[in-house]
Design a protein around this nucleic acid. Sequence first.
DNA 1: TTAAATTATTGTCCAAATTACAATAATTAA
DNA 2: TTAATTATTGTAATTTGGACAATAATTTAA
Lengths: 231, 231
Amino acid sequence: MYRIEFNDFFTSAFSVDCIIFGYSQGEIKALLIKRAMEPFENLWAIPGDLIYPDEDLEEAAERVLFELTGLKQIAMHQSQTFGKPNRHPQGRVITVSYFALIRIDDFEVKASSWAGDVQWVSLKNMPELAFDHNHILSSTYDMLKLKLQNEPVCFDLLPERFTLNELQQLYEFAFDQAFDKANFRKKIKYIPLIAHDEKQKNVKHRPAKLFSFDQKTYVDAVTSNHYTFKM
Amino acid sequence: MYRIEFNDFFTSAFSVDCIIFGYSQGEIKALLIKRAMEPFENLWAIPGDLIYPDEDLEEAAERVLFELTGLKQIAMHQSQTFGKPNRHPQGRVITVSYFALIRIDDFEVKASSWAGDVQWVSLKNMPELAFDHNHILSSTYDMLKLKLQNEPVCFDLLPERFTLNELQQLYEFAFDQAFDKANFRKKIKYIPLIAHDEKQKNVKHRPAKLFSFDQKTYVDAVTSNHYTFKM
DNA sequence: TTAAATTATTGTCCAAATTACAATAATTAA
DNA sequence: TTAATTATTGTAATTTGGACAATAATTTAA
C-alpha cells in the first residue's frame, strides 16, 4: 500500500455557498446569480466563493452576503457540507453551505464582479442550477423548514410589522398546506408579539392589525427556562 | 488591495471526525481514542482522519469507523463543519463531523496504528478533549438528540431485541428527564414494534417482554404517507 | 410452599391542546 | 346604505397528555 505524503492533502480548496432566503408576495425565494463564465455559463447558481486561507467559515459566508446585498450583522446558519470528489469540474472543492434570512425590502441587490445578473427565484419554481446546487438548495431548504418549526426565524423573513395572516401564509408556503385561521391563532398564542395600533394599508377590505415580534420578551422567556418556540 | 492567487487556496486540508455513539448500562457513550503523540498527547479525542484527495466525505467517515470497529454498512449522519483558522495548531484544517450509531455488543474495538487506547466514555462524564473536540462533540450530541425526536434512530443504539423500559431509559438519558411509564407507552403506541414471546433473562424480578423495531412496516407507513415518527 | 418484594403492564380520570366549524366585527366599494 | 370581503373571536367535540392507581407476573427468601 502506497503512502500518501502529508502535503498531498493540501491540494483541495474549500468554498462557502450562501443561500439567501427572502419572502415576498406569499413565496419564499432564494437570491441566485447568473453565471457569466464557464463552467455552467448562463446557468443560475447559488452565490459562493472560495474561503481565504485565514478566514473563518462564517466570516466568508457573511462576506458573500455583504457583497451581494450590502447587508451586515445578519445571522448565518450553517446547513451542510458537500464534497463529492467530482462535484466541481475544475478540481476538488468542498463547499460548506450557509443560509441567511433577510427582509427583501431592507436592501437593494448590488451587482458585483462575479454576479452580473441577480434574481429572486421562488422555491416553488426552481430551474436547473449549476454544479450540484439544486441538491444543496433543497437540503438547505429542508434545514430552513426545520428551523421554522423550532426557532422564531420566521420573523427574519417577514417585514418588521406584519399581519397574522402574513405569518400564517409564510408557514403555509413552507409546509405546503393550508391551516385553519382560528386554530393558527391559538397555536401562536404564546409567541410574544407586540400588537400595534397601526393597520394594514391599501387593501380593499377590512385592514388587519399589525404585529411585531417581541425579541426581548422572547429571550427572557427562554432564559428563564419556561418557554420553547414550537410550531 | 493585494490579489490572492487561485493556488494560494490550495494550502489547507480537510478531515472528518467520526463520533461513534453507543448505548450500554443506561448511558449513551462515545468511542474516544487517546492521542499517542503531540499535539495534545495523552488527551482523549474523537477519532478522525484527513480525507484522501479522491475520497467522498462520507466514505472517509466510514473508513474511520471501520478501522476502529470493523463495522461496515452503518448509516453515517453528517453533523457540522468546524473551520476556525486556528483550530489545528499545525495548519489550517477544516473538519466535517459525522456520527454513527451502533450497538455496543455488535463488535470488538480494534486497536489501529493511530489509536492505541480506545474507550467508551459516557456523555454524562466527559473529560477535557483534544483540539476543539469538546465543542464538536456537544454540537453533535445536540444533533443526535434532534434526530432522536424525529427519526427512529434509537433502534440503532439499542440491541436488536429490547424491553420497553430500555427504550424509555435511552430517552430519559438523552433528555435528562424522567418519564411516566404508562404515559411513555401511550406515546410510542404508533411506532411499529414486533412483540416477541421471548422475555428478559437473568433479572431478579418479573422479566419484561422483548420487542424489536418493525423496519418494514415503518417504511411502508412512511411511504404511504400516513405516519411520521415523533417523540 | 408460601409470602414478601419487585417490577411489568394496563386502566382511569382530569386537564390541556387540537380540530372543525360558526358567529360576529370592521372595512371598502358601489 | 348595503353588499362584499376579510379579520377576529367563540364554541363544542375530540384527541392527547399527565398524574396516579390497580393488577399481573416473576424472583427470592423464609
